[in-house]
């Protein structure tokens, strides 16, 4: 399945619980779960420091480009990516075939610690997302023509 079409409040709570726990243990600033198309599935942490939507789009692009690089040298993909800055750093890792976890952290913690706790968080997220996909296949979201007509032009 390419993406997760419907996220209920319980689904988001389950994902956020994993992310909160991860942030606390790894002492990171921000954790975002995105699909490989750049859509945000959920996010936790200090959301005021950056535009998370843009971070998600760029992270997905970066991850996708790196996957292609990996394939060129005979690897399936590099399942983690680390960008080191002067004060802020980004760690990205593959959760499953369609999902990426992006972590933003500063010098309060280390990449080793982030990487260590990411492994556990990713495994938990994968379980949550698998359950969610199975359940989501039976759920639908519908609009009526009136809903759309009432909205008028979107822009």
């Amino acid at each position: 399945m390419e993406a997760i079409p419907i996220l209920t409040i319980d689904d988001v709570n389950a994902i956020d619980q994993v992310l909160s726990d991860f942030l606390q243990k790894s002492e990171s600033q921000l954790a975002v779960v995105i699909d490989k198309g750049g859509n945000i599935i959920s996010q936790q942490g200090d959301l005021n420091v950056m535009d998370v939507t843009i971070v998600a789009a760029l992270a997905a692009g970066s991850f996708a480009a790196t996957k292609e690089l990996a394939r060129r040298i005979g690897e399936m993909e590099f399942n983690a990516l680390y960008h080191q800055g002067a004060g802020m750093h980004i760690f990205m890792n593959s959760v499953d075939e369609n999902t990426i976890m992006v972590t933003v952290f500063n010098d309060q913690t280390t990449v080793g610690l982030v990487r260590f706790y990411t492994a556990n968080a990713s495994a938990q997220l994968e379980q949550v997302l698998n359950r969610l996909r199975e359940k989501s296949a039976n759920e639908t979201f519908t609009l009526t023509k009136e809903d759309i007509a009432n909205a008028g032009n979107l822009f």
Binding site: E2, P5, I6, L7, D11, N13, D35, G38, I41
Partner: peptide
């Protein structure tokens, strides 16, 4: 594929 999020009451689309 669009994502419908009941927690944030948002629908995301990619064009």
């Amino acid at each position: 594929m669009s994502i419908i999020n009941y927690a944030s009451r948002e629908i995301q689309f990619k064009i």
